[in-house]
Write a protein that binds this DNA or RNA. Structure first.
Lengths: 215, 215
DNA sequence: CACAACCGGAGACTGCTCCTCCACTCTCTA
DNA sequence: TAGAGAGTGGAGGAGCAGTCTCCGGTTGTG
């Protein structure tokens, strides 16, 4: 679509563009997606005018940076599918995905935000689903997890553990691993297990929830 | 402190005060604590001036209404201590506490917000701790829950399940019960249980986390 | 009935983010 | 190496949302 070779940027312009991207990456990771373009400009040592000229609005910047990060998650899911033990596959996915989100506040926000014009983000997010579905299905079939575990449980568990990630960020960054362990123990099969009291969300309902979900 | 009998309000003033309280209770529950005093006034069918005359700022209103609700939680914890089975005590506490929070958005927000001048709220919250501690301790001692469960786990688990409460509110209000069940299964003792990888937060760390925690 | 208490709500004020504008600077090319 | 024009920076305007005040008019009460 946007051919980068249409009109090559002048050297100083290109340098500033890189600085802006680096600053944005940094600020998104440490302070989340609601930093200001003005903030990013300042952090990049560049005027706000320059920032707005290069990136018409923040969403463009978010897409440019965050699609890659979401794809990293996809890669992790794929790798976890290679793991022969289905249980370790699930565990590995949660551990690595959460570690990524713990290190990047923006990633977490972009994963769980209603689109509003973030097409490519939404697309990347959807691309994540098949691998996660497989991860869950093979674990259920192998009897490695409780039989009523469903695909949509994975993002929701991820979501709720993010709360702890945020809470612990400045106190005990590893805290989320404690609660992940508890949840994982709750996912393992066991003989005296009562069936879950409420059905998992279906794909449609889940998307509906995502859409209505705000901040 | 504020003796309500110093100068009794005129009848119309008292009536408006009640209307404002009712409107605030309603809006806090359905839309959360960040509704405007102007919103509340409109919803009460009263001018904004009247609202500000009666309640100098929103925090006063929040305290007036929310301290009671937090005390309800305390009462729940007490009742659950009466329950002879320690496991059912824990389960009952989570179920009832979460049901309360699911029905009142404001309650959840006030439970997990840094004080900023909400002394009485903070006080009521602290008053909750002893009962919860007992609930946990007797369950651990009875072997009804995993032995490494700690007091501070209860509010944090509550906190993370609130995420699901919010997510599900407009899609499937009972959804949180599914994840509560998973977590509870993760709390039960079992022979092949690895110890939790990270220590629970101590009282001091927990309070530290609460204080740093923003929005 | 008199008058203090009370009312309503327009709008002043504050604090924020987004974004534009334009006098000046720098790069690139001929 | 000089001139055209791309690029710069940051003050400041527009817009918005929440908080709170002020005061002409109304109402309850002794």
């Amino acid at each position: 679509m946007t051919d980068p070779a249409i009109v090559p940027l002048r050297a100083d312009a290109e340098r500033n563009r890189q600085r802006l991207l680096a600053a944005a990456k940094d600020l998104f990771a440490t302070r989340g997606l609601d930093v200001t373009l003005d903030d990013i400009a300042r952090h990049a040592g560049v005027g706000t005018g320059t920032a707005y000229r290069r990136f018409p609005n923040k969403d463009v910047l978010i897409e440019a940076l965050m699609v890659d990060r979401i794809n990293e998650l996809g890669a992790i899911a794929q790798e976890c599918l290679q793991e022969p033990d289905p249980w370790r596959g699930i565990v590995g996915y949660f551990e690595r995905a959460l570690a990524l989100q713990a290190a990047d506040r923006g990633l977490k926000e972009v994963l769980f935000s209603a689109g509003r014009g973030r097409e490519r983000v939404a697309h990347a997010r959807r691309a994540l689903a098949p691998a996660v579905t497989k991860l869950v299905r093979r674990a259920v079939e192998a009897g490695a997890v409780r039989s009523d575990l469903s695909t949509s449980d994975v993002p929701l568990i991820n979501f709720m553990l993010n709360t702890i990630v945020d809470f612990g960020r400045d106190v005990e960054p590893e805290l989320y691993r404690r609660y992940l362990a508890i949840v994982l123990d709750g996912l393992r099969p066991r003989d005296d297990l009562a069936p879950l009291p409420v059905d998992a969300l279906g794909v449609r309902e889940f998307q509906d929830g995502m859409a209505r979900w705000k901040r």
